[in-house]
Design a protein around this nucleic acid. Structure first.
Lengths: 359, 359
DNA sequence: CTGAAAGCGCTTACAG
DNA sequence: CTGAAAGCGCTTACAG
């Protein structure tokens, strides 16, 4: 059977009795065109199922309408982030291509640079951390609309000179809220169960923990605040479970700030093995608001991360960069503490909904 | 400052002292060309940083090299699936565009049809269930290479006439293994805590539960096997917690097959509220192998789903459809039971690694 | 307000 | 083995 070629704008022009240029004007809304002519062209186009060939259009306009998003394979929450980013991209008239990369920072950076150099994309969004050299976002004071020809590359997270990661998702300032609330509730001895060094989020949470506890200890009102140490160092809940063994029994009660919910869950298990109650002997906080956390016994106090909003925010930045507009201001906060049973009763804190009595 | 236009194949041709056609032959490997000429062209292309304009190539070859993947926003595990799919797509020379859709089945189906009709893609993979009318995968007995001009559309999951979903991820046969193992271990009274009706996976797990228990009851060796009911009906762990209240106290011990890990976690909490032990008064199984499940007390017996492999498998199907090749045979199984504490000791079953003693 | 013409950057028969 | 030429399907100054 013969494959009928899809109709072209020339077909529409012939059937509507106009020129190809007129069809183009009617469809794109550019140029000046009589309303009646426009009507007729659109009707004909519709009737024969005309769909413009985007490759041809792209060649002519030198605009691909395509964005590349670079993701890693492991971070599951990123699909929600992608959905938020896609929403903004679509509204701005772009389609999004996803490229999964892994490997070292250098390899990932090289991949992003390669994509930027391909000139196939109007912009690139990377969700995996890359070195700053891969990035190009017009500076705020550049005249709007300026285009130096480079493909804008925007990152959710980027390594700075000290190989730390910057980015909304890596923001760990919420840890300070935990520490302050627990100090206010009377806790004096703290432990951090950290994630792996190579994760920016893990480093950020550890750093904020260290400085927050130090600040509380420096406060004349609470000179007895002390950190018993930074334990763990992986995302393994099992390591967190074992870390509990390192907490001296005579230090109870102890406040444990875990770098994420898995680690917090491991701490709960480790506490049970030592016969310690939570809350009571230990209070524990997590991070990520993993769904299961609400059903642990005790339910986990944690940090809810608004991934779709993080995706929207970073995509807004990319779209602005493409359009040569200034970088948009910060959007809604993406972190929110969910207080539950594992942190015990805290003064001045509204507990989040718990599914039921602890036991 | 002037924006230098990126070099074209014509530039390469001029600098290499050959025609544009020769450049094309050298780069694509098509046509016949002297090795020396080829070398020279490639060297020149490299030296001026030539990157072919894919839009132009696409217009000429009528091949976009692009695939669309349609995802929903809510299913987090799909990012791992996407990574697997992307791996296969890249190896086959395609780039993947993601489109997030939501809404009713009809709306999603319409969206997929629209993407197929856009003729921008060489193939479409949908991870969200759509009606069969959106699908077009060459039948197995069609001659290889035949192309009726329609864009191949392959689905991970699709609704059949009875609005059930078919697809590897919706395969629930593992539930039968749970039921059989629990019957063999001596359990006679069963409960299913189901997910919401509108989820194919939830329906599939419920159906397999119902038929498996019925089959065991019909077995002369175990006539006393009985289902106490199908409870729940949402993905809310809190509903699962409340469902435990509906289990008659005089029915213990009861085997609870939950449709996923959240529901199983809710059951654990509900059991604790009634003062029931798990395992002991209840045994509980989940689904999804959510990371936290290993750290619940007791740790959750569950089903691990190999999402990257599911992604690879379905992308292999799409690539085969595009190439007019027959549908590839089934790949590796994607479901695997992880036995942990919540199902108790079962004869003939190797327990999965548990992080430590239950309490 | 509309049309004729050029051209975006490639690939591919075809001729030599 | 290589080159001259056509053409993929659009958009856009430009002329009328």
């Amino acid at each position: 059977m013969a494959v009928p070629n899809p109709p072209t704008s020339r077909d529409v022009a012939r059937l509507a009795g106009v020129s190809q240029a007129t069809v183009s004007y009617a469809l794109t809304g550019r140029g000046t065109i009589a309303a009646a002519t426009r009507e007729r062209v659109l009707r004909v186009a519709e009737s024969i199922g005309y769909r413009p060939n985007l490759a041809a259009r792209s060649m002519r306009t030198r605009r691909s309408g395509r964005l590349a998003v670079v993701t890693g394979a492991t971070l599951d929450n990123q699909l929600r982030l992608l959905a938020g980013a896609g929403e903004v991209a679509e509204a701005a008239g772009f389609v999004m291509e996803t490229h999964t990369v892994d490997g070292t920072v250098e390899e990932r950076t090289a991949r992003v640079c390669d994509l930027a150099g391909s000139r196939q994309y109007e912009g690139i969004l990377t969700l995996v951390p890359v070195l700053p050299e891969a990035l190009s976002e017009p500076s705020d004071d550049a005249p709007a609309g300026q285009d130096d020809g480079a493909t804008p590359v925007v990152a959710e997270a980027t390594f700075d000179e000290q190989m730390r990661t910057l980015g909304d998702l890596a923001d760990a300032s919420t840890v300070e809220v935990f520490v302050e609330a627990l100090v206010a509730a009377g806790y004096r001895r703290f432990v951090h169960v950290a994630g792996p060094e190579q994760f920016a989020s893990a480093r950020a949470r550890r750093d904020v923990y260290v400085t927050s506890v130090a600040r509380a200890a420096a406060d004349p009102a609470t000179p007895d605040v002390v950190s018993l140490g930074v334990l763990g160092g992986s995302w393994s809940g099992d390591d967190a479970r074992r870390a509990v063994a390192e907490i001296p029994a005579d230090a109870l009660p102890v406040a444990v700030v875990a770098a994420n919910d898995f680690l917090a869950a491991g701490v709960l298990r480790g506490a049970a093995e030592r016969g310690w109650s939570v809350p009571g002997d230990l209070v524990v906080t997590g991070w990520d608001n993993v769904e299961m956390g609400a059903f642990m016994m005790p339910s986990l106090t944690t940090v809810a991360v608004d991934f779709p909003e993080a995706g929207r925010a970073v995509m807004r930045r990319l779209v602005a960069a493409i359009r040569g507009e200034p970088r948009p201001g910060p959007g809604r906060p993406i972190h929110r503490i969910v207080w539950r049973e594992s942190s015990g009763d805290l003064p001045g804190v509204a507990p989040g909904p718990a599914p039921g009595p602890p036991r």
